[in-house]
């Protein structure tokens, strides 16, 4: 397994370097914003504007720069198929459990390294920006790492299941697009509830003041969003263990289904036949005899 872990990390070297470069570039820009706010052109703006700019920059540095680490994640599965490593792997004594385990461990190592680096960088940012290192930062970073890990594990499963980049990519993308759509739908429907609440609240206020009911408009939904966010935070605080349990369960399930998918012989998985499938007219089968010896001498 050690050999496979080394292989995964070795093959990810380029991506690691690129991700780190983007990460440090973003960090540098954020620090430059802060320096500009203290010594440069930004300080010429109003105090409020400068404070807002610096705060936004700080949170961008803490929460958005970490997104560049998503590129850290090894995407070596397809290159295993393209380079015929998958075939070779089957001729070695490595078991499917070891193969999937090695992929999980190498990704875990990379994510953990990223977390340590980012926590260290956040501490430095706090010192530079004069902000406090808040207690929720670390759980938030871990949550991000969990999401990335689950995404990776699911992607791995899709590749082992379909053994074809295009098909796996399609299923993977469709799943996450559906997830994204359902989140958008939830947020959008919530917005309607906010609007109704806001208009009811404003109408009540206007009535008390003896003004027409639409005097304050209906768009001030900020307090309700904040209420919801607080509710979510409280929910996470009280039931964080459910999230951890869910993560572990998902990881275990994805591990076993990936092992099962990988165990299927290549012919049953359809790799050989599908890779050799040619684009044909739907009528070609009427005029051409069936090609023989599929999967042979490949």
């Amino acid at each position: 397994m050690k050999g496979l872990i080394f292989k995964e990390i070795y093959l990810s070297r380029k991506r690691i370097i690129i991700s780190l470069s983007i990460y440090f570039f973003l960090m540098l820009i954020c620090v430059l914003v802060k320096l500009s706010a203290v010594y440069g052109n930004l300080r010429l703006l109003s105090e409020d504007a400068v404070r807002n700019a610096v705060t936004v920059t700080f949170y961008l540095a803490v929460f958005c720069s970490v997104l560049s680490f998503a590129g850290f994640i090894a995407d070596n599965i397809n290159s295993d198929i393209v380079s015929h490593w998958s075939n070779f792997q089957r001729s070695t004594p490595m078991t499917e459990k070891q193969v999937v385990g090695a992929a999980y461990i190498s990704t875990g190592i990379m994510l953990l390294s990223m977390l340590v680096l980012h926590i260290f960088m956040t501490l430095m940012l706090c010192a530079v920006f004069g902000e406090t290192f808040r207690s929720y930062y670390i759980p938030a970073f871990f949550a991000f790492a969990f999401i990335v890990f689950i995404g990776y594990a699911y992607r791995l499963f899709c590749f082992y299941r379909f053994r074809q980049q295009k098909k796996a990519q399609f299923v993977y993308s469709v799943t996450f697009f559906c997830l994204y759509l359902s989140l958008c739908f939830a947020a959008y429907s919530r917005m309607y509830v906010y609007k109704d609440k806001a208009s009811a609240h404003n109408a009540q206020l206007a009535e008390k003041m003896g003004l027409p009911s639409d005097a304050f408009g209906t768009m001030d939904i900020g307090p309700f969003v904040k209420q919801d966010l607080i509710a979510v935070r409280d929910l996470i605080k009280s039931y964080w263990w459910i999230i951890v349990l869910l993560f572990i369960t998902l990881t275990v399930v994805l591990y076993f289904v990936s092992v099962k998918a990988l165990k299927r012989p290549f012919d049953l998985a359809g790799q050989i036949t599908q890779d050799k499938k040619e684009k044909k007219s739907i009528f070609s089968s009427l005029s051409e005899p069936k090609k023989a010896a599929k999967g042979d001498d490949s």
């Binding site: 075939n87 089957r90 001729s91 049953l268 010896a293 999967g295 042979d296 001498d297 490949s298």
Partner: peptide, 16 residues
């Protein structure tokens, strides 16, 4: 080509 040599070898190696 297509005689079944690779298929035989792949079955020995448990690839198929």
């Amino acid at each position: 080509n297509g005689a079944g040599k690779s298929t035989t070898i792949n079955t020995i190696l448990n690839i198929i």
